[in-house]
């Protein structure tokens, strides 16, 4: 059975400690976590700003951000590819086919998720806090740090959703990273490669490892935010 072989392959990979495999796992985590960090650093404040700001066209912006949560990874990859190509506007940076390019592409995918969920959570929290914060002088955008801090456990969900999207996608990293062995090959591009080489058990085995990693990260984050939320009320 192919499925049974896949599990054997998965545990072989995990227990074998093959340096090439570990490098792939390491790069996957590095790229995805960097992308999620970038998206969080940009997206959390932007989401909070969008929650508090009132301007003409705000509704349209919210709809746009929500829609971009469904941005196809291939399209995000293509955009970054065209930006970073030597013939593109940012070509002189020489970033195409590097891990940095992969981080940019994934950050682009994760950003709308972080902004949209942050906007929603911050808006709800602000409705509850607004009068008190205004009373102690935190009017307008000065409420943002308090709202982000107090929403941190709920916001972890936004970050996790972004992490899930980034760690699972292959379209964007394949286009901008090039799946270069030992340099830009991640779990997902390796899965695509092994599939195309017809080694389906190994491909699924890699998939199982990826799922286990995602599971572990989700479990840790969920546990931490539950404990934290209980402490903070």
């Amino acid at each position: 059975m192919d499925i049974a072989q896949s599990f054997t392959a998965a545990f072989g990979l995990i227990l074998g400690g093959d340096p090439a495999f570990l490098a792939i796992v390491g790069l996957s985590l590095t790229v995805t976590l960097s992308a999620v960090s970038v998206a969080a650093v940009i997206g959390l404040p932007l989401g909070a700003l969008l929650a508090l700001a009132r301007f003409p066209g705000r509704g349209a912006v919210i709809v746009l951000v929500n829609a971009l949560m469904g941005l196809p990874p291939v399209v995000a990859g293509l955009l970054v590819f065209l930006l970073l190509s030597r013939s593109g506007p940012l070509g002189p940076l020489g970033l195409l086919f590097t891990p940095t390019a992969m981080v940019v592409a994934q950050a682009l995918l994760v950003l709308p998720i972080v902004i949209a969920i942050t906007r929603q959570l911050t808006e709800d929290l602000h409705a509850e806090y607004r009068e008190h914060l205004a009373s102690i002088g935190l009017t307008g955008f000065r409420a943002i740090p308090t709202l982000l801090w107090d929403g941190r456990f709920a916001l972890a969900t936004a970050i996790l959703a972004g992490f899930g999207r980034a760690s699972a996608e292959v379209g964007a990293v394949l286009i901008v990273g090039g799946n270069i062995a030992g340099y830009t090959r991640t779990m997902t591009t390796a899965i695509a490669l092994e599939t195309s080489k017809g080694d389906l058990p190994l491909a699924l085995g890699l998939g199982i490892v990826l799922i286990l990693l995602t599971l572990a990260i989700n479990a840790v984050t969920y546990g931490a935010s539950r404990v934290g939320a209980r402490f903070a009320g």
Binding site: S34, I42, L90, P99
Partner: peptide, 20 residues
């Protein structure tokens, strides 16, 4: 998306540096 991309670049050059 140009502005966005540039912002992301400025942010992310650090984390990816070790791999490079």
């Amino acid at each position: 998306f140009l502005a966005l991309g540039a912002a992301a670049l400025a942010q992310d050059s650090r984390p990816a540096a070790p791999a490079q």
